[in-house]
Design a binder for these strands. Structure first.
Length: 617
DNA sequence: TTGAGATTAAACAAGC
DNA sequence: GGCTTGTTTAATCTCA
């Protein structure tokens, strides 16, 4: 993208931001209910609210444009925004004045009964509010650096500017106003005195001012650039530009005094809008306006969150379901989710549903980047990063049970989980099938496919040991083999190791959600299902199963080596008798056949004796 | 680009 | 013979 294109793009963005704000302002002004809302104000950073989602980050801009270009760009944006805002406010003022005149004429007929019509007063108040809204918005813009003093304003006595009042000063003003004048009086005074300028010549003292532009850093780091731009001596902007000065007249609420140039305006500002009861009352009203705006913003934000929650959670869809943990795709969604649900976790679905998608979908339907279940993406994050599948299933049990979403786990991990969930750590093939269908809606169809896969996995992986008992053949898990089967891949990666330490390495989980899950996952890591104490599956590892279980965590813990952890290593020494590729090569049968033959023995006792014998071989 | 792992499909055998 | 269970191979896909 060339600088010219970027410039144009930025201008469009600035226009869009201005339009969005104007729309919000219009909504707030025309909404009668907004004035009735007396909820506590919610502090919402306007800089965030104003941020356009598609806005290019300052880092990107800095990479593309040179500092002078950036300065010119920002100045252009601000000029456009300011111009649009001023035009809008002027139109609003004209419209309100028109309505006011109409009401005044109508009010004259009722003047005998009501010296001052309520409607007229309401209009006046609305006009006042609108004007103060304009001022407040300009103040906000300036505080954020979106609108700044123009280069030519370097001569302006900044201490006289109303936006120079810092919050503490406003609080002081507030105290003064509340101590001297009731709110109603101040409003009424403003309402009746919109076009008069009767203030005295008291001026702001330097002690009561703060720097003209507060140094709230913008979230995207634009502060530095804007500061730099303020020091710039460039151009373009007409020197006679001021937030309260436009179209040759004073924009102070209710003033509209014509000023030929900025100097005259400044003089007018110092004399007519100095610190007095009237100005403090205006500040007080302005604070109320701000409060209402914040309430309105809070309402709109809440509405937005509800909309997003609706669109993502689809509660009214015929197949509602909650998203599993790793469905949260963005910080925004995460925020909305956490706001919607106090526990910060997606709530399980409340109703059983039919399969969401009849299509065969990729395992990683639940990746962070793919919120929706589309695309044959495969990602078995559980195996890759030793995901505590038990915790995942525990937290999203209802989801997987009802939603036709393929679980993001490998067949092997699912089979292992099914086996480990049983008290005796063993399952027949049919019981494994039942566990799959019971736990996952996804496995209630295409049975031939996934059952074949289950059988294939059971036979393929050495970690699954077939044991024949009196009831027939059952499958158990050799935890050690399971760990050996998948050596850690996070070799030397501090980040991954760190994630593993936390036990939250869902891979697809975003950082915020990982943080939210931290507490809930740790206890689950120690859940009984994660501790393998089965004597059956343990075979020769009786007494080591806890270690084996620990290995899963210890592995995650710190070993930055692809080799086994100390526990595993000692284990490996101890169980070196287990079939290895070399040993199998010397055998006439395959590894799997050997393993299975070794363990497919009449009873556990023989089985336990078998392997030490193999050790000797 | 490549290798490893996972998935899917299929063939085949054994047992009931 | 049909079904289930179990084994094995091969092709394909995904990801690091």
């Amino acid at each position: 993208m060339s600088p010219v294109e970027l410039l144009h793009f930025q201008q469009q963005q600035a226009l869009q931001v201005a339009r969005q704000f104007l729309l919000q302002q219009a909504t707030g002004l025309t909404s009668p209910s907004s004035n009735e809302n007396k909820q506590p104000a919610v502090q919402v950073p306007v800089s965030v609210a104003m941020m356009s989602p598609q806005m290019i980050t300052p880092q990107q801009m800095q990479q593309i444009l040179s500092p002078p270009q950036l300065q010119a760009l920002l100045q252009q944006q601000q000029a456009i925004m300011l111009q649009q805002l001023q035009e809008y406010y002027k139109k609003q003022q004209e419209q309100l004045h028109l309505q006011l005149l109409t009401q005044q004429q109508a009010g004259k007929q009722q003047a005998k009964e009501q010296p001052l019509g309520n409607k007229q007063l309401a209009f006046q108040q609305q006009l006042l509010q609108m004007q103060q809204l304009q001022q407040q918005h300009l103040l906000n813009l300036q505080r954020q650096g979106l609108v700044s003093l123009q280069p030519g304003q370097g001569t302006v006595p900044l201490q006289t500017l109303p936006q120079a009042v810092c919050p503490s000063d406003l609080q002081q003003l507030w105290k003064e106003v509340t101590a001297t004048q009731p709110v109603e009086d101040s409003i009424k005074q403003e309402g009746l005195d919109l076009s008069t300028n009767t203030s005295n010549s008291t001026s702001f003292s330097a002690a009561k001012v703060s720097p003209p532009i507060s140094h709230h850093p913008l979230p995207n780091g634009q502060n530095a650039m804007l500061t730099q731009r303020r020091d710039s001596s460039s151009h373009e902007e007409t020197p006679g530009s001021h937030p309260l000065y436009g179209h040759g007249e004073c924009k102070w609420p209710g003033c509209e005094t014509l000023c030929e140039d900025l100097g005259q305006f400044v003089k007018h500002l110092n004399t007519e809008h100095a610190l007095d009861d009237r100005s403090t009352a205006q500040c007080r009203v302005q604070m109320q306006v701000v409060q209402q705006l914040e309430i309105q913003l809070a309402k709109e934000s809440e509405r937005l969150q509800a909309m997003m929650a609706h669109l993502h959670m689809r509660p009214s869809e015929p197949k509602p379901f909650s998203q599993p943990l790793n469905l949260v795709s963005s910080a925004t969604l995460s925020k909305s989710t956490s706001d919607t649900f106090p526990d910060g976790l997606p709530h399980p679905p409340t109703s059983a549903t039919a399969p969401i998608t009849p299509l065969r979908q990729g395992p990683s339907v639940i990746s962070s980047s793919t919120l929706h279940n589309v695309g044959p993406i495969r990602r078995r994050n559980s195996d890759k990063f030793c995901t505590p599948i038990s915790s995942e299933l525990a937290q999203n049990h209802e989801f997987y049970k009802n939603a036709d979403v393929r679980p993001p786990f490998t067949y092997a991990s699912l089979i292992r989980q099914a086996i480990l969930e049983t008290p005796d750590r063993q399952l027949t093939l049919n019981e494994i099938y039942n566990w799959f269908t019971r736990m996952f809606a996804y496995f209630r169809r295409n049975t031939a496919t996934w059952k074949n896969a289950v059988r294939h996995n059971l036979s393929l992986h050495k970690c699954f040991v077939r044991v024949e008992n009196v009831k027939g053949a059952v499958w158990t898990v050799d935890e050690l083999e399971y760990q050996k089967r998948r050596p850690p891949k996070m070799t030397g990666s501090p980040t991954l190791v760190k994630n593993m330490i936390s036990g939250l390495s869902y891979g697809a989980l975003n950082a915020s959600y990982q943080a939210a899950l931290a507490e809930s996952n740790f206890p689950l890591l120690n859940s009984p299902t994660m501790i393998n104490t089965s004597s059956t599956s343990g075979m020769l590892h009786v007494g080591h199963d806890d270690v084996s279980s620990t290995v899963e965590q210890v592995n995650s813990n710190g070993s930055n080596s692809p080799r086994l952890s100390p526990q595993q290593y000692s284990h490996q020494v101890h169980v070196k008798e287990e079939p290895t590729e070399t040993e199998d090569d010397s055998r006439p049968v395959s590894l799997m056949a050997t393993t299975n033959q070794n363990v497919t023995i009449p009873d556990d006792r023989d089985m336990e004796e078998e392997l030490p014998v193999e050790d000797l071989s």
